[in-house]
Write a protein that binds this DNA or RNA. Structure first.
Lengths: 144, 144
DNA sequence: GAGTACACGTGAATC
DNA sequence: TGATTCACGTGTACT
């Protein structure tokens, strides 16, 4: 219960943080184009071709930040709100999780051996959890 | 053995990737300053004052990328080399790890109950692993 | 050749 | 103050 609460707190803290950083700059919409490009065709409604790339890039940045803050929300014990620190904390957290998993697994093996010693041929319930990486919910089109 | 190998492969893949992105632009050293600022003092060895901020910012970017690629090296099953995807994969991975931890813990409880049923008063070895977040190796100076 | 992802330098904001 | 972090728009490279 407690950890869930804390998680949520972290979530909103980060959200507010990033919002206050992002929306401060945007102010209003990006309809205002800084410069029109070339005297190409005055016929085609003065289409702002440059703003396409701008919005695209702006979107890329936004997405990365969202992901970053989502990551941040998952990690307890955050040192700073800094982007780099967020990633670093995530790294530390993953390492801790792994370490713990190893320990826990050893514990299980221990317990099982105890049981087996007392009851040879004991049948355990489910399959043991898979060894390396849990599950692959997405398929990777990884480059060759 | 296999997972370690794969981890390392991931590591170097990412390293090469980021290097080919970064060092391509830098080319040579940043000793070449794009513009000198003001005719301030021809006496003081033509010190490039503007390059200070530039190098600083460049460093910030580099640090974030290094962290990002370190994170990437930790995560198996990468979908894309994209920065945003790296973070997303890390998120998924953390969630999987947690999920697994829960399952494993339940398993332990199960095994223990089995043992205790057969041997009331059985004494287990070490302490059970801590409940929420493993350890706090760093102290947080978190902003108010 | 449009689409995608990136590094870059700069000005602003926060402490 | 100055240090630090950020978002921004632009140019470049790879597909």
């Amino acid at each position: 219960m407690e950890s869930i609460d804390e998680e949520f707190r972290n979530y909103w803290e980060t959200l507010m943080f990033f919002q206050s950083e992002e929306l401060l700059h945007n102010g209003c919409v990006s309809e205002v184009i800084s410069r029109f490009n070339g005297p190409s065709s005055p016929d085609t409604a003065a289409l702002p071709v440059a703003s396409k790339s701008i919005d695209l890039e702006r979107n890329r940045r936004k997405k990365l930040n969202e992901r970053l803050f989502a990551l941040r929300a998952l990690v307890p014990k955050i040192s700073k709100m800094d982007k780099a620190s967020i990633v670093k904390d995530a790294i530390d957290y993953i390492q801790d999780l792994r370490e713990q998993e190893g320990k826990i697994r050893a514990e299980i093996a221990e317990l099982e051996s105890v049981i087996l010693k007392k009851n040879p041929g004991f049948k355990f319930e489910g399959e043991r959890s898979p060894p390396a990486h849990p599950k692959s919910k997405r398929e990777s089109k990884a480059a060759p």
